[in-house]
Design a binder for these strands. Sequence first.
DNA 1: ATGGTTGTTACACAA
Length: 263
Amino acid sequence: MPHISVATWNINSVRIRTEHIARFVSEHQPDVLCLQEIKCRNEEFPLKAFSAMGLRHHHIVGQKGSHGVAVVSKHPLQPIQAPSFCPRSEARVSAVGVKGLTIHNLYVPAGGDEPDPAINDKFAHKLEVLARMRSFYAAAARDQATLVVGDLNIAPGEHDVWSHEQLLNVVSHTPVETEGLEAVRVAGGFIDVARAQKPAPEKLYSWWSYRGDWKTSNRGRRLDHIWATPGLADRCDRLDFVAAPRGWDRPSDHIPVIARFAL
DNA sequence: ATGGTTGTTACACAA
């Protein structure tokens, strides 16, 4: 039975983390790897290193210094016009076709510290991106097997954070965000593949702050997501939060999430 | 108690 495995990872600089990616790819062999926060221009992306990993196909949406997303793949990629979710035109969205699937690779703004759009432009920006996503997916055609993956910078459920009560007023877990993200998911008719595979109340985290001892305190959040259209979600037979890279030397603050689907 | 870290950049900003 043929399968395709797709991983998503906010790498927080693809250039300084290239060796971490190589180790992850060697150990987990994703067919497709969706990266966020590559933090480089297209021409600075380390293509040769990815070719050496067997990921010879690429679709890069870079930007100098900040943000930036990329998809690398063992299989040929067909670039697709990406939806314009970001009103500031930052490099936060890429879209590709691969093996008959459509993949949207997203990097939703973090949103700053203060969860009030009236006084925090970054939070207002985050909410505007969510609103655009909701409109787009509500109107999108549903006849194509589609994955929406990436760092959505929202931990939607109470078991997606180390303390629901203590994070209710913390950006990434406020009601306007968690309800907004759920509205996007429902508008598109997507299944949250991680929760379909690993139901609550199991705690699931994909990010731990750089501040403090991540492993001992374990104050994580599930910010990174893999959503699928229902027929595709039904064909998911493996899903893993790969925590080991968080313990490697000079890690990203996010870990990879990988899902496998029967084709 | 109101910290604490990281990456890119250039004399902060974003996360």
